[in-house]
Design a protein around this nucleic acid. Structure first.
Lengths: 153, 153
DNA sequence: ATTGAAACGAGTGAGTC
DNA sequence: GACTCACTCGTTTCAAT
């Protein structure tokens, strides 16, 4: 990961669909060199994939919430089981396994408040290992599309 | 948004860099038709962009945490000011503006625990509007790369 | 590791149904 | 609105450095 690799990663985070020629032009290197760099970064696992960013409303997920969940007993088996089933719920977009006060954080996206209510009642209430949860509505999200590489020190 | 549009969106969420020809082949339509559909989806704002997915460790963000924050007074001015300054902190990857128990959720990524400690002390402690915060380490994240379109009903 | 050139494959628009 | 065809442009390989 030299300066050139960092620059490639930064540009691809911003626009993953620009052509290899355009990428090379912006970096001041030959297209073939650029292509080889990108391939090496992919081989090393630095670049994990390319994804389209879709308006949540178009996916009928205009209403979003964060649901923090506590489960008991706090065993490996219970955590793994809940993690898997939560990830399989269609309303759940991300599952975070946490330490600290809460055990899980679920990023949920649904059509409207009715569906959020339904999610909480139909999906969460039924699970015996859940001993508590708290729902926070998301009003705005500011996401860094291209998080920069932080300095070493 | 008919079935074809949904399928295009799903495929581009999974792999944004596949060629238009490949996309058309998988959908069983002509490349020019596919290209026109993709352009229309972009024009309508359904497709918002294409981003490379980068290994956080390569960005020196191997250690991640969720920090929930309460601010006071809960006025529009205070919320907007904190939102902007939080989004500008290099360690912060996402800022969620919430309702409910907490006012903000910060998704933070840093090199190691020392830097997380530094972030909490140097960035958050100094801000007078913050009346409380709670940090949860992220041990695992399961993200839906291509969240499906939820049914209308 | 990087390059330039050549072969191959993809993007694009006009015309047609 | 979708398709075919022809043209242009980009991607990829490879021998040379």
């Amino acid at each position: 990961m030299d300066e050139l690799d960092s620059a490639i990663v930064r540009l691809l985070q911003t626009d993953a669909r620009q052509s290899n020629r355009e990428l090379a032009r912006q970096l001041g290197i030959a297209p073939s060199t650029c292509l080889e760099r990108v391939r090496a970064l992919t081989r090393k696992g630095v670049i994990r994939g390319y994804h389209a960013d879709i308006d949540p409303a178009a996916l009928n997920r205009g209403v979003q919430a964060m649901v923090s969940v506590q489960v008991r007993p706090l065993s490996r088996a219970v955590i793994n089981a809940f993690k898997s089933s939560a990830a399989a719920m269609p309303e759940v977009m991300s599952v975070y396994v946490l330490s600290g006060g809460d055990d899980f954080l679920l990023h949920v996206g649904v059509r409207d408040l009715d569906h959020l209510h339904g999610f909480l009642l139909d999906r969460l209430s039924k699970r015996k290992e859940i001993v508590g949860w708290r729902t926070s509505m998301i009003f705005q999200q500011v996401r860094e599309v291209a998080p920069e590489r932080l300095p070493e020190t």
